[in-house]
C-alpha cells in the first residue's frame, strides 16, 4: 500500500501563461518529481489582482469566483508567484464579506493555496532532484511573496542545493523593483527610478544571474537590464531548480 499522491492544481498565472511557459513546465517538473499528481485546469485565466488593486472589487470578485470553482477540489493549489498566491490566500476571503457560503469557499481555497517554493519547503519538506548551474546568482525578494506570505528562506534553501551555484545577496534584496502592476505604466517615470536602483543593486553584486519568484518583477528587471545593455541573465527560480535552463533567459535573444 502506498499513500495516494497529493493532487495538485497548478495555477500558472496569466503572466507565465503568456510570457514564459517554461516557468509553468518547471513548476510541473518540480511538483511531479516531488511525487504530486499535477493538473492544470484549462479554463484558468487571471486571479483578479489587477482589478483588486485598481479598486474594482466587483471585477476582482467575478474572477475570484471562477478561480475558486476551478481549483477548490484539489488537495493543494500551487502557484509560481508570490503575488498571485498572496491574492488568493490573503485577499480572496475579504471579497466575500457578508456572504458566508462564498466566504467559506474562499477561506478553504486560501488555506490550501501555496506559492511554489513555499509548497516544496514548508508543505512537502523535500529537496528537488540534483541540478547544476555554474555561476553566481542574486535573489530578488518579491514584495507580496515576502511581506504577505513570508517567503524569504525557502527559495534560498532550495538554491543552496544547486550544484555549482553561489548566491551573492544584494545590498537590499527586499526593496521593491518598481513593477507594481498598473503602477509601472501609470507612473512610468517613478517606476523607472525605482527599477534603476534595483538594477544598480543587482549589478553591484557582480552576479551573472538574477532570480526571483514572480514574473512581474522579473520582466521589469530583465527589461531594464536589457535596456542598459547588461549581460546579467534573468530567470524564474523554478527554471533553475528544475534544471530547465537550456532556452534563452528572460529577454535574451534566441540562438
Amino acid at each position: 500500500m502506498t499513500t495516494p499522491k497529493p493532487r495538485v492544481g497548478l495555477f500558472v498565472t496569466c503572466l507565465v501563461d503568456f510570457f514564459r511557459p517554461t516557468v509553468g513546465f518547471s513548476a510541473v517538473k518540480l511538483l511531479e518529481d516531488a511525487g504530486c499528481e499535477v493538473s492544470v485546469p484549462a479554463a484558468q485565466t487571471c486571479c483578479g489582482q489587477p482589478a483588486y488593486n485598481s479598486g474594482d472589487r466587483a471585477g476582482a470578485r467575478s474572477l475570484a469566483e471562477q478561480v475558486i470553482a476551478l481549483f477548490e477540489d484539489f488537495d493543494h493549489v500551487v502557484i509560481p508567484s508570490g503575488s498571485c498566491a498572496g491574492m488568493i490566500t490573503t485577499h480572496y476571503p475579504s471579497l466575500f464579506s457578508g456572504e458566508p457560503n462564498w466566504r467559506l469557499r474562499a477561506e478553504r481555497l486560501a488555506a490550501k493555496t501555496h506559492e511554489l517554493t513555499s509548497f516544496l519547503v514548508d508543505v512537502l519538506h523535500i529537496s528537488p532532484l540534483p541540478v547544476t548551474w555554474e555561476g553566481t546568482a542574486t535573489y530578488h525578494d518579491s514584495c507580496s511573496g515576502l511581506r504577505e506570505l513570508g517567503i524569504k528562506e525557502q527559495p534560498r534553501q532550495l538554491l543552496s542545493a544547486v550544484d555549482g551555484l553561489a548566491v551573492k545577496e544584494m545590498r537590499d534584496p527586499e526593496a521593491c523593483c518598481g513593477f507594481g502592476g498598473a503602477f509601472c505604466v501609470k507612473y512610468d517615470e517613478i517606476s523607472n527610478a525605482i527599477v534603476e536602483r534595483k538594477v544598480a543593486d543587482v549589478r553591484a553584486t557582480g552576479a551573472d544571474l538574477l532570480l526571483s519568484g514572480d514574473l512581474g518583477c522579473l520582466l521589469n528587471i530583465a527589461g531594464k537590464l536589457k535596456r542598459e545593455g547588461s549581460r546579467v541573465e534573468v530567470r524564474h527560480v523554478a527554471e533553475v531548480l528544475a534544471g530547465m535552463t537550456s532556452g534563452p533567459s528572460i529577454g535574451e535573444a534566441r540562438k
Binding site: 503568456f18 511557459p21 517606476s191 530583465a222
Partner: peptide
C-alpha cells in the same frame, strides 16, 4: 520608454 519588453516565448 524606459525598459525593453521581454518577448513571449511563443
Amino acid at each position: 520608454r524606459w525598459r525593453d519588453l521581454p518577448a513571449p516565448e511563443g
